[in-house]
Every structure is written in C-alpha cells, then in structure tokens.
C-alpha cells in the first residue's frame, strides 16, 4: 500500500517488505538484498584483502553510520564527532594497556565514556540549531582535543602506543589478524543493525515526526530536546564504539582520531555515500578508506583528491553513491 501512496507523487518506489525477518530493522526488499550482499562482502572480504585494512574500513563505516544517525534522521550536523571517536580510542587503549582489561571490556569502557561525553556535549549543543549547533560541537571537540593533548595519560603527541589486543573474554587470543577480524565484523554488524533498529523504533518514529514538523511535535506535548539528546548520545556512543575498536585493532590511540579533520572526514564519507540512506555511510567509508590506502604513496595529494571528490559530489551527485543508485533503481537503499 505504501507503493500506492508513493505512486501518487509520481516517484514510484518499490517498497516491498523485507526478507528473512529483516523488516524488523525497517528494511524493505532492496535493503534486505543489499544487507545480504554487504554481509557476504564482510565475510568473504578478509580472504581477498588485507584484514587490517578491512578492519579499519569497518571501524570507519560504523563511525559514519553513527554520524548519519544524527544528520540523516534528526537533521543535526555535528562537526565535532571526532571527540567521541577519539575518546573511545583513548579510553579503550588506556583500559586495555594500563588497567589490563580484556578487549571486550576495554571497548565497553571506551563506548561508555563516549556516551557520557555525548550526553554532556549534546546537552550543551542541542539548544541551538543549524550552523550554531555545528559550531558548538566543533568548539567542544577542540576543547576535548586540547584536553587529550595535555592530559598525562594520553602520551601527548605520541599517543598511547603498543596497546595489547589481548584475549577475548580472556580466552580467545586476538593477536592473529583473522581472529580479531571476526570480532570487529560482529561489532560492525551489530552496530549497523542497532542503528537501523533505532531508526525504525517507536523512538525513531518520534524523531521522524520532529524532523518533519518540530512545532507540531511540540504542540502534541513532545519535549523535543529530550529526544534529540537521546539521539545525540546514542550517536556518540556508537562513534566511540567504532573508535574503541580501531584503537584495539591498531594498538594505538593518537591525536589524529580526535582532531577536527577527523570530524570533517566523517562528514565527507557520509555525504559521499549518501546522507540519510541506510548503506550510504558504509559505501562512503569504503571508498575513502580504500582510496587512502591505494593512494598512500602520493602523500599530501590524497587530501587534494579527497577535496576534489567532495566538490564533485556536492555539485553533481548531491544524493551520494547510494542515493543516486537508489534513484536509478527506483528503490530506497
């Protein structure tokens, strides 16, 4: 019946229900198929590509998905999401190295601190909208950056190095890349499905209503700031989860992950892949990470190429990879 409805506005979209119980995550048929393809790629990937590169890709993909939850479904452009990504990294690295926690607990610590920081930063930032919101998040992220630069436990410019990967639950040794790969793959898939669930939950429905018509939502008695804050905190926690996993993968936590350029990179990934699409952030992260890897020998030129891609994307492919693909195939992706 939803097909019928869309047909009236002249943009026929095939919205057939999802497969294999994936409609519980709000997936239509096209999204279910795309998910299965993605699942296949995640499982088969490490047999064709270097697992560490893929783990990096999955961490950034989750980071971009977390960012997309906020911009794509609440309409809030955070320009400081590196503070959560980096916080996850620092805290997970510290927990694993200094406190000697097992990797899953270290990642949990990183995620929890990211969520707490998200609650505080969100509480300050959501009072403003548009460019002011973006500027406040940027300013807060810079404060967090200088905190990590000065704080004694972070190692300043050197960062936290030689973080042990440890053993999962104290049982499964993760020093082998393939062993760790499956852990990261599960984290990514769980995070991805969690975000889809949030978007298609009763809470997600309220978020959608707020984005569509905020004054009307208020007039129905919704305290809209509470919903924005919860969405912001969830997004921050997931970004921190991604950062935590990355720190465990590479065994380091550095200022790079908390610097403002990292906030910019996640914006680029999401825009390139397709803002507000389910799979766009993953596609955007894949393109950027693989490109950085391929072009690594070009040094600083990578940044120039990224800039050109950004400009081309904004000028010609406003909807991003998945947005344009979806338009072509007349499905939502």
């Amino acid at each position: 019946m939803a097909v019928q409805a869309s047909a009236l506005v002249g943009a026929p979209v095939n919205d057939a229900p999802g497969l294999l119980g994936l409609s519980g995550f709000g997936f239509n048929r096209a999204q279910s198929i795309t998910f299965l393809v993605m699942l296949l790629l995640v499982v088969a990937g490490p047999f064709f590509l270097y697992p560490v590169l893929l783990m990096k890709l999955l961490c950034f993909a989750l980071f971009a998905c977390a960012f997309n939850l906020l911009i794509g479904y609440v309409g809030l452009l955070s320009f400081g999401h590196a503070m959560f990504f980096g916080t996850g990294g620092y805290l997970a690295a510290h927990a694993a190295k200094v406190w000697g926690l097992t990797p899953e607990l270290a990642i949990l610590v990183g995620t929890a601190f990211g969520a707490a920081l998200g609650a505080v930063a969100g509480w300050i930032a959501i009072r403003r909208q548009g460019i002011y919101f973006a500027m406040i998040t940027l300013a807060l992220a810079q404060m967090v950056y200088f905190f990590y630069l000065q704080a004694p436990f972070t190692g300043g410019e050197d960062g936290i190095q030689r973080v042990p990967r440890g053993a999962l639950f104290g049982l499964i040794d993760l020093r082998a890349d393939m062993a760790l790969y499956w852990v990261v793959a599960v984290i990514f898939l769980a995070g991805f499905l969690f975000i889809s669930r949030v978007v298609h939950s009763p809470f997600g429905q309220v978020l959608k209503a707020i984005r569509e018509n905020e004054p009307r939502a208020i007039s129905l008695g919704y305290r809209v700031d509470d919903y924005k804050l919860l969405a912001f905190t969830l997004s921050a926690a997931l970004a921190a989860l991604a950062g935590s996993a990355k720190a465990i993968v590479f065994g380091i936590a550095t200022l790079t992950d908390v610097y403002w350029t990292m906030s910019g990179e996640v914006v680029l990934m999401t825009l390139l892949g397709g803002l507000g699409t389910v799979f766009g952030p993953v596609a955007g992260a894949a393109v950027i990470v693989l490109m950085q890897n391929q072009l690594a020998e070009l040094g600083a030129w990578v940044t120039v190429i990224q800039g050109i891609i950004f400009v081309v994307c904004v000028l010609l492919f406003r909807a991003g990879i998945m947005g344009e693909l979806g338009r072509l195939l007349k499905v939502r992706l």
Binding site: R197, S201, P202, F203, G204, L230
Partner: peptide, 11 residues
Amino acid sequence: SFDFWRSDKVL
C-alpha cells in the same frame, strides 16, 4: 516514545 531498542511494529 523513548523505546529505541524495539521494532516500530509494537506501535
């Protein structure tokens, strides 16, 4: 309205 972990099918 705050249930973010449930499917919207409960609605």
